[in-house]
Design a protein around this nucleic acid. Structure first.
Lengths: 135, 135
DNA sequence: GTTGGGCCTTCCCGTTGGTGGAAGGTCAAG
DNA sequence: CTTGACCTTCCACCAACGGGAAGGCCCAAC
């Protein structure tokens, strides 16, 4: 398989696949002409990485998961540990975004959005941050 | 005011303030010794940017908001437009993270997390993606 | 006067996870 | 033989800074 085939089958852009080789996630063989010669194993790994990335795992997490995947002596606890940490990070991000969303929603609702210059959004950004104590 | 004072008062790292000057968000004057000489106006702008950044606005949005802030002829509709687009982007990210969170939570719960190698998380990553049907 | 420490300056590299493009080699069809 | 679709490497770029080096400036203490 050439990189184009693998790209189609894995859903990953060829550039990304080359990048993954660069950083040592995969090590495809080479044909005599210098082209990368992918095997099913490589394709499988790339699909694995693609799914891990789709779940938001970082590249180093992917490397760790791949290593555990190939290690039949692994303990599921190691895998779960990585996943739990990532889950915590996601929760952190969701909380951060939700806080932004709350404030922004309030501001957007408070803004008339007409021809006049008066704007609660700019007022909020320019004012010293006033605490929200909404019981 | 030197950069250290402005850093303390605005809560932004000195590095960040220099960066904001680099990209043209602020243009502080210079003292004879080459030090940046900030005025209240600069501090005010930086605080504005800091609050906008805290709401997740990108640098270019900040530039736009700052321009509108200084334009007394603005219409609040322009401001609201930027905020609404940003809000939509936040919603998109929250939805994405929530989808990841759902899958990950299910997988983490399904994984024993013990000494044995059997792991539903790795199984899911290595298998073709199976659809999740939402009721 | 000079030494020390704490500021300040610019400059360049590193981050994350790739994407875009240029310059050039390879291969199969017509 | 040429064309076009592949493939290769290399270099540059994105956001939004952070780290650290090398050097200048300033003020107080000795």
């Amino acid at each position: 398989m050439n990189i184009g085939d693998v790209s189609k089958r894995s859903g990953l852009p060829a550039k990304t696949i080359r990048y993954y080789e660069d950083i040592g996630l995969i090590t495809p063989r080479r044909s005599a002409n210098g082209y990368r010669a992918f095997q099913d194993q490589d394709l499988h790994k790339l699909a694995f990485i693609g799914r891990a990335r789709a779940l938001g795992f970082g590249i180093e997490d992917c490397r760790g998961l791949l290593r555990l995947y190939e290690d039949t002596e692994r303990s599921s606890a190691e895998v779960k540990q990585i996943a739990k940490q990532h889950l915590a990070e996601i929760d952190r991000k969701v909380a951060e975004l939700t806080a932004m969303r709350n404030t922004l929603t309030r501001l957007v609702h408070a803004c008339a959005g007409d021809d006049r210059p008066d704007c609660p959004i700019l007022a909020d950004l320019s004012a010293p941050p006033h605490v929200e104590i909404e019981p």
